[in-house]
Design a protein around this nucleic acid. Structure first.
Lengths: 217, 217
DNA sequence: TGAAGGGTGCTTACGCTGTAAGCTTATAGC
DNA sequence: GCTATAAGCTTACAGCGTAAGCACCCTTCA
């Protein structure tokens, strides 16, 4: 193959290949050799552009942060802004489920991570939140979004009949299945009427936004 | 060595050794060979008592769920009960930071996990929550606790001077450090006055509890 | 007393991982 | 056209989870 035919490797191309692979095969499917393979290259070649696997993961995380959309501080109602931010964040986490456990764990946050945190804080500050209150509101909302994404990722269940069946299956091996009456009640209900993740997310979000609004008097 | 001198292996002994190892060295330090080493045994011997590494992890997770303390449904004020539960859950997650990303991800939840979810639901139901409201309240609280634990785990920072220094360090490599004015403000504040995780957790928790109480009118 | 059988732990081996060291080839500047 | 530099490749190693099969001990029954 003529050398001109191959696009040169770059950190960006590597990260993009890696994120696609992770989206498709999960984090443990995203190995250096597979990423390289995807780019028609050997594993060790990646190390010219990436310090280590951990560095690569940091890059991926920052790419995900980059997908979170935020308005400008001071341009809108803070509740609307925070609502949009939470939704955008959830969307990004849904698109890249493997990232959920990684988002906050990086030793040195990338520029997109810094941007997100700074802007969110800014929105609250410009809306008149006292410093401590802004940090707290931000922390509570953030915790909620991550936690929700975590729950949602791990319930293999969507709200169809299969869900209830799966859960019932899980409970069966237990000595006395009726030892969990409330859980069984829940399963029956969901099997009958379904469970709408989006609606539940919104409901929880509104509840928290109201709590924040109220807590600053 | 005389055979009577060695305690026989068992699933329970293995899980206990593994949880200690994970607490000490983190999840990636907790390999089959190391666990075995801790017990004076070869790696493959573990497979007599544990189906796979994943099975072992499920066992660990259920052990952590087992540390979450809950009262009996119907015996107390639901807010007090949920507050205690959230604190107990956070304590368990702090003790076993490696577990945070694993707690909800198991394909078949163990008996302790089922107990926790059932009892929490029960507390709310017995306090008069409608079915959907109980599930929602539980989900929001759960999300908050996991999310908070996640944030807390990943900020290597405690609220001392080192924290601000670390964060400042992280921002430095960025083109224009003053591109993050709100973040810098936050760092300055925390460096001066500290950041109390427990207090922040409580504040967020109360905010959510109030939101839940209000949302059911 | 002895033989059979099952459970327990060990040995060996395989394919996978991240990555250190050093080599080779392509490119750019004079 | 020669040389310095960078980019990608090759080889190799230690460690991972675990499949297959062996060796031993402990129980049970004749």
């Amino acid at each position: 193959m003529p050398p001109s035919a191959r696009t040169p490797l770059s950190r960006d191309r590597i990260l993009r290949a890696a994120i696609d692979l992770a989206d498709r095969d999960g984090l443990e499917g995203c190995t250096m050799r597979r990423i390289a393979g995807e780019l028609g290259v050997e594993a060790m070649s990646l190390y010219r552009h990436v310090k280590s696997k951990d560095d690569l993961l940091s890059g991926l995380v920052d790419l995900v942060f980059g997908e979170i959309e935020l308005g400008e501080p001071g341009t809108r109602d803070w509740q609307a802004a925070m609502r949009d931010r939470a939704r955008s964040q959830l969307t990004a986490l849904r698109r890249h489920r493997w990232a959920i456990g990684l988002m906050e764990g990086r030793m040195r946050p990338g520029p997109e991570s810094l941007r997100v945190h700074d802007t969110t804080l800014g929105i609250l500050r410009e809306a008149g939140f006292a410093f401590r209150a802004a940090v707290r509101a931000n922390s509570v909302l953030d915790a909620y979004v991550y936690g929700f994404a975590l729950q949602e990722r791990d319930l293999p269940a969507r709200a169809d009949g299969a869900t209830a069946e799966v859960m019932r299956e899980q409970i069966r091996p237990v000595p006395r299945a009726d030892a969990y009456p409330y859980l069984l009640e829940a399963m029956g209900e969901f099997a009958a009427a379904g469970y709408d993740y989006d609606a539940e997310f919104s409901a929880g979000l509104e509840l928290i936004l109201a709590g924040i609004a109220r807590s600053r008097r």
